[in-house]
């Protein structure tokens, strides 16, 4: 590097020119960070204390929006409950299903790529096509699911048309898209060094104990990652409910972001929608932090291999 430094032109040192180049390279992202991330975050925070219908100037109402949320608005607790119900059942279930699939799809079998594709493809199906397809699978009279269950003598269910079954229906549907997490688990499984399995085998560990004492600890950062990302994503479930049920029947699938969307773009309550967004942000942040705190107890980082 010394030879290069010696060639620096003019009064700029190489260090300075490098830094200047870096900021120029980063210019689009710095603008993006300011205009599309940090600016909106601050604006959203300020808007949360206003009442604004986009037509008249925003009015400062202090904690009015939060007051409404926690005492007046009946739909806020319903949407929060629906979202929590959906999230806390589907996220752990997803992780388990995806992990089992990844373990099976990591076996060195012939044609395994074909199976990987079969399991992965549903998770890249367009949300709209997906929703329409599942609307039909859940169709009470002739839908695929009732026909299939009928073969086992299960009486037909009304799935999306019944308040008690609507949320479980969404959970069933979301399982179909476990492939995204499965791929991440696969990548994790393949980066576990083989010598650990060999050492365990020499020590007399069977398949189950190798799984318990090698695979699980080595994979724990990936499980953690999938839980954190899964929770952030699932809290924001929107498209499927918007297309399939519009929040019904009797608000049983009115998920948080759907309710937020309705407030912002149907009722034009931008202030209230911003307040809702910030409450969601705090909830997500809380659960993410809790996961990071608990992680110390169960997530194993192989420190010396970390860069």
């Amino acid at each position: 590097m010394a030879t290069v430094a010696a060639r620096s032109r003019g009064r700029w040192t190489l260090r300075q020119r490098e830094a200047l180049a870096a900021y120029l390279f980063l210019l689009p992202w710095l603008v993006g960070l300011l205009v599309f991330v940090l600016g909106p975050v601050v604006a959203s925070f300020l808007l949360a204390f206003t009442s604004w219908d986009l037509l008249n100037p925003p009015q400062w109402i202090g904690l009015g929006n939060f007051d409404k949320m926690f005492s007046g608005d009946k739909l806020f607790p319903i949407s929060l409950y629906n979202t929590a119900y959906y999230t806390f059942i589907s996220v752990p279930l997803h992780v388990v299903v995806a992990l089992v699939l990844a373990l099976a799809l990591n076996l060195p079998l012939r044609g395994i790529r074909f199976f990987r594709t079969a399991f992965y493809v549903p998770s890249v199906t367009p949300a709209v096509a997906n929703a329409i397809l599942w609307l039909w699978i859940f169709q009470p009279e002739v839908g695929l699911l009732n026909v299939a269950l009928g073969a086992f003598g299960v009486p037909p269910q009304r799935w999306l048309f019944e308040a008690e079954l609507a949320k479980p229906s969404f959970i069933i549907m979301s399982m179909w898209a476990s492939g995204g997490q499965m791929v991440i688990f696969l990548a994790g499984l393949q980066s576990i060094p083989e010598h650990l399995y060999e050492a365990a085998s020499i020590d007399g560990a069977g398949a189950w104990r190798r799984f318990l004492h090698v695979t699980l600890p080595m994979l724990s950062p990936v499980i953690f990652f999938n839980l954190v990302i899964g929770l952030i994503g699932t809290f924001q479930v929107f498209s499927a409910a918007y297309i399939m049920t519009g929040g019904g029947p009797s608000y049983s699938t009115l998920f948080y972001v759907l309710y937020l969307y309705n407030n912002a773009f149907k009722f034009l309550q931008m202030g209230y929608a911003s307040a809702l967004a910030w409450v969601l942000f705090l909830i997500v942040l809380f659960f993410t932090l809790v996961q990071f705190l608990v992680a110390g107890r169960w997530v194993y980082y192989e420190g010396e291999l970390k860069r």
């Binding site: 600016g39 808007l47 969601l280």
Partner: peptide
């Protein structure tokens, strides 16, 4: 950061 936070602004 949940995208809904930046959605309205």
């Amino acid at each position: 950061l949940p995208f809904v936070v930046t959605m309205v602004p």
